[in-house]
Simulated assay, not measured.
Amino acid sequence: MTNQDLRAELTENLDEAEWEWLVPHMLRDAVIVVNPELDLLDVGVAIASDNVSEVQIWIDEALIAKPSTTQMTEWNSDRAKRFNTLIVQPFVLVQEKAAA
């Protein structure tokens, strides 16, 4: 599958979710927070195509990471908090949506 095909397939998986819906994924340690300066689809394509070098750069620069304790505490106190989400098995990539 080409990156374009992969991108098209992943585009169909882009969604929006409340924190409440993400908690089960959080409990299985599958949530990855993507910095808002990155494109969620770009990250999804890199992970799905096993682009280790690009993903490692983002990890090293803390642009993608597991949620911090502070973030989880904040999100647990606002269960209606909304996120842009992208499922790339076995992970759920999330970007916090700005408050409206």
Rank of each mutant, 00 (worst) to 15 (best):
R82L: 13
V33P: 14
T69V: 09
A65N: 15
N84L: 06
I32E: 06
I64K: 02
V33W: 07
K66C: 10
A98E: 15
M26R: 11
V31M: 07
E54Q: 15
Q89R: 03
L63V: 11
W58H: 09
D78A: 15
R28S: 09
N76Y: 08
R28A: 07
D78V: 13
V88G: 07
D39V: 01
D39K: 13
D29R: 12
E54C: 04
E37N: 02
D29T: 11
V88H: 02
L41W: 01
P36N: 15
M72D: 07
Q56R: 13
N51I: 03
E61P: 00
N76E: 05
V55W: 09
E37L: 03
V43Y: 02
Q71I: 06
D50P: 00
R79H: 12
L27W: 01
A30W: 00
V34L: 01
V52W: 08
S77K: 14
E54M: 14
V55E: 07
A65L: 10
I47F: 03
V55Y: 06
T73M: 11
I57N: 13
L38Y: 03
R28I: 08
I87K: 04
V55F: 10
K97A: 04
S68I: 13
L40T: 06
R82G: 03
Q95V: 02
F83Q: 07
A30R: 07
P67E: 05
D42W: 01
I87S: 10
I57A: 08
